[in-house]
């Protein structure tokens, strides 16, 4: 047996787990329909959770991107102040976090595609549950128990396949979300620590130094202005 045949067998076993085989399908049609509607709701909830996780990851990513920009700005300020040493430190941090967030960005994009796919599958499933509802009324009205058994067998298996398929797709998306969340948390921590293993709570020495330089500049400017006002400019 090849791969596809094996996968088909495993998948069909999952489907028969999903389905409730009934003695007289007419009696349990309603019950089985209710169960399908219930499962559809569970799946909707599951998709909503994936969407929420994705949004949280996007926010996290946006925050990291801001930090990268901030370090870029710090590097520029440092160059302007003639402090290449500080600029180098800022750029090192920027690059360390950038390297981490690139794969994260790709995975968030992948998750967005996953979300799209789940939504599409869920819409199809809703249509199928609806078709099942119509068919069950027809079957109840027109067929004997024996005939109904055959008719409903095909319909429930078809629908059961879609249920199982969507449940698996959802599981897959949840697994991906989980690993992504762990990864994002690790990058976040790295960024918090300034990518240079600072102690938590310790202030950023690069930015502090730049602030000092800027403060020094303003003092010097003011001094120059004061001197000019008092007629004690450099030329006089």
């Amino acid at each position: 047996m090849g791969l596809l045949s094996r996968m088909s067998t495993i998948f069909k076993a999952k489907v028969s787990n999903v389905l409730d085989r009934a003695e007289d399908p007419r009696e349990t049609l309603e019950y089985s329909y209710q169960k399908q509607v219930e499962q559809l709701q569970n799946i909707r909830r599951g998709i909503a959770e994936v969407v929420t996780s994705k949004k949280r990851l996007e926010l996290q990513l946006a925050r990291l991107e801001q930090q990268v920009q901030q370090w870029d700005q710090d590097a520029r300020d440092a160059v302007a102040a003639g402090r290449d040493d500080l600029a180098q430190q800022a750029l090192a941090r920027k690059q360390a976090v950038e390297a981490q967030i690139e794969p994260l960005r790709q995975q968030v994009q992948e998750l967005a595609r996953e979300e799209e796919r789940l939504t599409d599958l869920q819409q199809k499933l809703a249509l199928k549950v609806d078709a099942f509802r119509t068919q069950k009324e027809v079957i109840k009205a027109q067929y004997s128990a024996a005939q109904a058994q055959v008719k409903i067998g095909e319909a429930t298996t078809g629908l059961g396949e879609d249920m199982a398929d969507l449940a698996l797709a959802l599981q897959r998306a949840q697994d991906k979300t989980e690993s992504l969340r762990a990864r994002a948390a690790a990058v976040d921590e790295l960024a918090e620590k300034g990518a240079l293993a600072l102690e938590p709570g310790e202030r950023d020495p690069i930015r502090d130094e730049l602030k000092k330089l800027q403060a020094h500049d303003t003092v010097a400017e003011e001094l120059a202005r004061l001197k000019a006002e008092m007629g004690k400019g450099s030329g006089s």
């Binding site: 996968m7 078709a131 797709a169």
Partner: peptide, 14 residues
């Protein structure tokens, strides 16, 4: 069509 309820003969992975 999405409203067709039919069992599959073969399942391919995603």
């Amino acid at each position: 069509a999405p409203d067709q309820l039919v069992a599959s003969d073969l399942i391919l992975p995603p």
